[in-house]
Each structure stands twice: as structure tokens, then as C-alpha cells.
Design a protein around this nucleic acid. Structure first.
Lengths: 181, 181, 181, 181
DNA sequence: CATGAATGAGACTTCATTCAT
DNA sequence: CATGAATGAAGTCTCATTCAT
């Protein structure tokens, strides 16, 4: 067996189970079973159950923080749409679900989520600044527009599954763009 | 001691504890202790633990569903602001927290949250229709505007606490209003 | 079943097992089995395993602290012998064994043992003072004699079992008495 | 790294840990960590955990058994004091602690402790015989005196730490000497 | 109705020991 | 020899739920 294989299988199993039933509802024994490792090995890699969650978030969600934003000058709607299509979050659908659902479970999850939100807002604002170069001085409006767009994107990722209401980011992008002209 | 008094105290205790530590992390014994009732009495009123949560949501969160909306004709921003200031959710801060946090715990919680979202969207759209009587036919844009505003309000209620980013509903109302003119 | 019966049986079982194999080597499950109660009931009465030991020491060892000492004037040896025959420790042989063996396990056990030793010394000295009324001023010698006798008695209770060497308290009493004349 | 170096470090670590928290409470993994050796190596040198304790006692406590005793003729008190000042136990303070604390853990520890006690008594008696050459025939009294002194010395080594009562061996030596004249 | 002792399944965690490399 | 991943039995503790009184 390749080194790290067991550890990876444990994280795979945990990702699947945490996304499905939630952290609290997932016994470590079930993680071990799904990962086809003995119960004790879970402890060997992750001394406490919470360490599995922390490792997942640490290793399997990456908030891409960058200064470079792809803006289409003169096209704020297109710029936001583009941003929406590629969230600065490298994570599987399962990990996205975990990130939102378990925000209360551990500080590290909440912090990661906060970073994502912050990055989203920063990008949206920066993109809008580039797309609308003439609007210097209207900082406040850009700020609100960026925050609104970020809120919609996170809503899309999280609450929307709970409430059952879809929302089209492109349409919101257009709405916001329209409000800034 | 009046009958029902105990029941009320149990719900009070559960509300506080569920909001603080979450449903799963709150043992019934702790609820009983905080409510100053014997452990057995909790199960007398609520045969299963989940029934406490269901009762809380049933009895302590009221989504006000109505057709009557207070609109200010010609002032869509003011109309949305007004809506934001009085969410159609009669619930304590604790219950609001529970509603969002425990949406995964039981179908009834998720359903209540969905109703809140639906009502929010319906109200926002209806209010916008009244505030902008000339825009018949632009249904799609109004729909998006309403959904966006609802998303921001729910974000405000929920994720904002997790991510630490505030957002001003009034400014968003103005943004959206501006986009509709 | 009489109230307290189960709790008593748990303590009975623990006393027997702790005396036999030691605290660490005795699983709570075995205590429960010997007490003929379900495992969970042990926790019901004693939230932590250590609480069983603490309760045993608290409730089943009594260090009799008193000012009144039975002295035979003019007969220091007889006085000490008498003291040796009735240690100021109301406890079963099992509890005596536990008291000495588990002194490191919990502060409360060590403290109780310290109280026993202190009482022993105090009594021995007081008894000697009464038995030898003429020796005012020889406080230091009485003190040493009392401590020595206490040491021998505790040795008798504890180390003697470990080392396999018996020691006759009466002979030591006579030795000490002889040294004081 | 020299072979045996690791073994020594393991024993060093175990000595420190057993003295501090006790044998049962010290996991082999912690020993390995403190010794800066891999876990498996502990079991390479000591197939069972108990073998570490046995090796410690075997190799690091030496009960000096000898016939030659340094007696001061005519000065029994001085003779006993001298004995007290150099117990026939070559062992670090940690090992002394282990010897007394773990006497129940393994036969070999108890046996070593018994040997120490026996040697103590033998020496004390022999020393007294030499110091008081005139008292042939008074064997019984010498025996009691020797046992008493041994008891005090062991008490000093062990229980005294637990009970918090100091005792001065020199004073006891004088007391005993006085009783033999 | 009210009470808290009783129940037991199962959770997390510990850890001595093995063994393939 | 050296290594640390692997193993699994067993330990402590949790807690929803029942039920006799």
C-alpha cells in the first residue's frame, strides 16, 4: 500500500460522509469502514475527530487570493458574470457543502468561509473598477455593488439549496451593471 | 406551578441552548436542567428530542404571509428599505439563528426557511410592482431584483455573522432601485 | 429496589476491585458487572471513574480526630500499645489497602492519608504527655517518639505487606517507652 | 548513533516518566517520543512494556548487600545515623520513587523493595551489635530496634512525601540508642 | 401528572503490540 | 537493525429514551 493512501482514503470517506449527513452525525467508525481502514488508523492520522474536518478544509478548499482580475473594460455585467462562473474557490461540490454547513463546527471552517467571502467582495469590486474606469469617486456604490454580488453568489452556493429558490447570477450581474451606469 | 409553564420553560431553555451550541450538541438533560424541570418531563411533553426543535420552529417562528404590502409609489428604494426593516419573520434573534443553523437537521426547519425566502421574494416583487407601476411587462427584471434583495437579506441574517462582513440593506435597496429606472 | 441500593452495590464492587487489582487496572465495566448494574448506571452516580474512588475515600474512611486520648499514667508503653490496637481509622481492610495504594491516584486520597498520619502523631504525642506527666520541657523527644511510633504503625499497614517483614507494635511501644524514662 | 545509546535513552525517558506519572499512565509512545526514538524501537529492546520497568529496577536500583558494616563501638546513635545517611540503595531519586510507587505493578519491583528492607534491617541490627558489644543475649530488643529504624527510613523515603510529615532520622537514631542502654 | 433512577447502544479515544519495508 | 504505519481490543464516557413509583 502506497504511503499516504490510507490517509487519503480516510479524507475521501470523511468528505463524502460529512457532505452527506453532516459532521456530528458521522461516527468515526463509519468513516473508517467506508475508507476500508481499521478504526484505530483514523486516530493515528487524526488524533481527534475534529482534526479530520480541519484537515479537509485545510487541504481541500483553496481560496484563490490574487490581485489579478480578469475585467472586460466597459462591460461590468460581463465582468461579474465571468467572476461568477469561476468562483475563487478550488473545492469539490462536497467540500463546498461542508464549508457552508459546518461553519459553526470549528473556527477554521468559519475562517475559511470568511476568507472566501472577503476575496469575492475584493474581486468583484476590483473587477468593477476596471470595467468602469470613469467612476472614480463612486467608491461607496461600487462597494455596495460588490457586496451584493458576493452575497448572491454565496446564497447561490448555500442557502439556495435549503430554500429551493434558484437565482441566476448572470441576470444579477446585469442588474447590478445597469445600476452603475 | 401552572401546567404549560414547564413546557414553556423547556422551550425557552432549548431555544437558548440550540442557538448557542446547536441542536446536536445540546443534550436533553441540559435542557431539563436549564428549564428547572426533571429530565423525564421533557419527554412527557416532547416524546422525541427532535420534537422540541419542531415545536420551537412551529410555535416561535412565524412567517407572515400576506398579500398586503406597504409600497411607496414612485420610491422603489424606500419601499425595499421598508421591507428590509421589517422582515416577515416574527422570531427572536435566537430563533432566527436556529432557523438557519438547523435547516439540515429536520425537514420542517428547512421548509420554514423556504417559506420565509419565498415570502421575501414575493413581497419584494409585489412591492416593486406597486412602487413602479409603469413597468408592467418587465416582469423578469423585477423578479431578479426581488430575488437579489431577498438573497441579501438572508445573507444578512445568516452568513454575514459567519463571514464577518456587514452589508447595508438600504444601500442595496438604492442600488436595486437605481437599476430599475 | 431500594433507593441507594445500586449506588451502594457499585461502591461495594469498586472497593473490592480497587483493593484487589488497583484503581487503574479496574475497568468501570467490571465494576458494573460485579455490582450487577448496567454500565451506564455507574456514570449516573459517578460522572467520572475517579469519582468512584473519591466517594469511597470520602464515605468509607473516617479519620477520627479527637482531643480525648486514653492514656495510662505512668505506663507509656501500654498507652502506645493501646493506641496501636485501635488506629484512629474507621475503614475496612479493603479501604485501608486502597488508601495506601492509591495515594498517588488522587489528591483526596493523599490528603486523607496525610490526615491519618497527622492524627496518629498528635495522638501518640498527647498520650505520651499524659502517660509521662513529669517530662514537661522534653517536648522534642516526645515529638520524635510520637513520629517514630506513627511511622511504624503506617509501615505496618502498608509497606510491611510489600516487603514481607512483620513488625510488632507492642515491642516498638516498649522500646520507645524505655527510651523516654 | 551507537547501539545502546538508544536503549539508554529509552530507559532515561521511562525513568523520568514512570517517576512522574506512574507506570500505568505512561504510554510507550510517550517514552519513545521523549527518548527521541521511533516507537518500534522500544519494542525491539523491550518486547513488552513491563520489561522496561523490570530493566529499570534491575539495572538502576542496586541494593548493596554486604556483611561489612561501619559501626562506631559505644555509639549506637552515631552508628544508626551513619546508616541513615547512606542507605544501601544505589538509585536516583526517580528510581527510588518508582521502587515504592510501583511495588504492586510487578513481582520484581516488590522483591527488590523487600530486599532493600531486609538489608536495612540486617545492617541496622549488625551495626547495633557492633556498637553495643556488651548486649549479647538481648537479641529480641536489638531486632525490634533495627526493624523500627528500618521502618522509619522507609517511611522517610516513601510515605513521608505523601503525608507531608518530615521525620529526622538522627533524632530517631538517638531515641533508639537511648532505649538500648 | 411528575420524577429521576435505570438502561444499553454506541460514541470517541487510547494504546500495546505487530510487521512489512 | 530501524521505522512508523497498521491493527483491533478495550477503555471511558455520552445520552436518548423508558418506566416504576
Amino acid at each position: 500500500m502506497v504511503i499516504g493512501d490510507a490517509r487519503t482514503r480516510i479524507l475521501d470517506a470523511a468528505e463524502e460522509l460529512f457532505a452527506g449527513g453532516g459532521y456530528e452525525a458521522t461516527p468515526t467508525a463509519v468513516i473508517a469502514k467506508l475508507a476500508r481502514v481499521p478504526k484505530g488508523l483514523v486516530f493515528h492520522y487524526f488524533p481527534r475527530k475534529i482534526d479530520v474536518l480541519v484537515a479537509l478544509v485545510d487541504e481541500r478548499t483553496l481560496v484563490e487570493e490574487t490581485r489579478e482580475v480578469d475585467a472586460l473594460p466597459g462591460d461590468p455585467a460581463g465582468t461579474l458574470s465571468k467572476l461568477a462562473r469561476r468562483l475563487p474557490l478550488r473545492a469539490s461540490p462536497s467540500m463546498r457543502r461542508i464549508l457552508f454547513r459546518e461553519a459553526d463546527t470549528h473556527r477554521s471552517v468559519k475562517e475559511r468561509l470568511g476568507r472566501l467571502n472577503g476575496e469575492l467582495i475584493r474581486r468583484a469590486r476590483f473587477a468593477l473598477e476596471l470595467a468602469l474606469p470613469g467612476q472614480r469617486g463612486e467608491t461607496a456604490r461600487l462597494e455596495v455593488a460588490a457586496a451584493t454580488f458576493a452575497a448572491v453568489l454565496l446564497y447561490q452556493e448555500n442557502l439556495c439549496q435549503l430554500t429551493g429558490h434558484q437565482i441566476d447570477p448572470d441576470a444579477v450581474a446585469e442588474l447590478i451593471a445597469h445600476s452603475l451606469i
